[in-house]
Design a protein around this nucleic acid. Sequence first.
DNA 1: ATATAAAGTTAGGCAAATCTAAATAAATAC
DNA 2: GTATTTATTTAGATTTGCCTAACTTTATAT
Lengths: 217, 217
Amino acid sequence: MESFTEENYLKAIYHLSLLSNGTVQTNAIAEKIKTKPASVTDMMKKLADKNLVDYIKYQGVSLTEKGKLTAIGIVRKHRLWELFLVQSLGFKWDEVHEIAEELEHVNSDLLIRRLDEFLGYPKRDPHGDPIPDQQGNFEESAVTKLSKLQPGEQGTIIGVTEHSAEFLKYLEKTGLTLGTQISVEDINPFDGSIELLLEQKKISISKEVAKNLLMKL
Amino acid sequence: MESFTEENYLKAIYHLSLLSNGTVQTNAIAEKIKTKPASVTDMMKKLADKNLVDYIKYQGVSLTEKGKLTAIGIVRKHRLWELFLVQSLGFKWDEVHEIAEELEHVNSDLLIRRLDEFLGYPKRDPHGDPIPDQQGNFEESAVTKLSKLQPGEQGTIIGVTEHSAEFLKYLEKTGLTLGTQISVEDINPFDGSIELLLEQKKISISKEVAKNLLMKL
DNA sequence: ATATAAAGTTAGGCAAATCTAAATAAATAC
DNA sequence: GTATTTATTTAGATTTGCCTAACTTTATAT
Ligand SMILES: [Mn+2]
Ligand SMILES: [Mn+2]
Ligand SMILES: [Mn+2]
Ligand SMILES: [Mn+2]
């Protein structure tokens, strides 16, 4: 059994490893988890002892198969709880992350299976992220960042890669919610900001925002 | 904000203080929380510093008003989660205690208010215990232990004072569930065991069991 | 009232997780 | 290719919660 803290480290490594091809740097983990690099080094030794990560001094870490399965299990719990909060308890999508961050550590397989059943074996969380099944399997659908689209192209928003309340609230206010269809009208060559057509209305968003929106074409 | 551990201590002290008129012994806490008396002493000093308990060396502790409110808040969370597990996720009453023991520490007032609303502002948990409202108020209905009844008297089971899975499973199997009406037929003078009439059937239970069943007459 | 037992506390340590400051290795720059 | 910057690790402490063993206080028994 992993501690609360170990679980948070494993999850952080997992998320970071999806961006960099498997290997994750000490500093990246420290930043993600809001701790200091020295603490990360300590923990990496511990996780390596437990066979949850492969760790080579100065070279970064990667999850072992066991570590990866554990991490995916936590992600599964996190996303199921988020969906429960939104779907059953009436929370908004920008209010659930912090609470799920705690709920994900409650330790009962039966609880999670029942929650999964209660929610009808959902495939996506409120942010469009896939929910792994009990075996840890999930399909990552083919997605494109909105920032990659060219003028004239269009698609539907199916996910976000940034989960902060500020960002999600901004999307909500602007109307950029999951399932919304948009088309790219123009790209400003100066700052990369993008003109969109969203339900008849023209709006402009920054490149930064566009990078965090996932589209189905 | 109290730590996970501090919350468990406060809750233990609260439950114990209901049995002894307010003051609780070090050893009783140690036993309840499955730790050693020395650890309890350490924690009592800490809780006293935080103004959560009044502590006099060698004389035991009692909750301050602040400590009591905190403890009742945890009890509220515990019982709401237990009811959710039984009512929404299909758990049995003997399966929920351990899980609620973890869920009760999830820290979000909004979450608990929403859960309360979702469950329809319930007044009782699956074991018949009252669920405090947001202000910490609840009515303890007038109850009598089954062990106090005399032959010829009858009543309805409305609660239990022991929450172990073994005990609850035994009750389930025997048919002694909440809401069941029973009458006392005879009391064995030798060991205090009790003959009951339960839905036409005669059964016998030990004094030990009877002490842990709460009745409405 | 003294002796013994029970209850409670203190002293001294340990493990987990964290931090700061100092040292070392790797990457990058010129 | 050396010098500097950046990344990482080590050393040494701190905090929280827990433990054992020894000591002190309070309760009980005769
Ligand atoms: Mn977490
Ligand atoms: Mn999510
Ligand atoms: Mn608990
Ligand atoms: Mn209960």
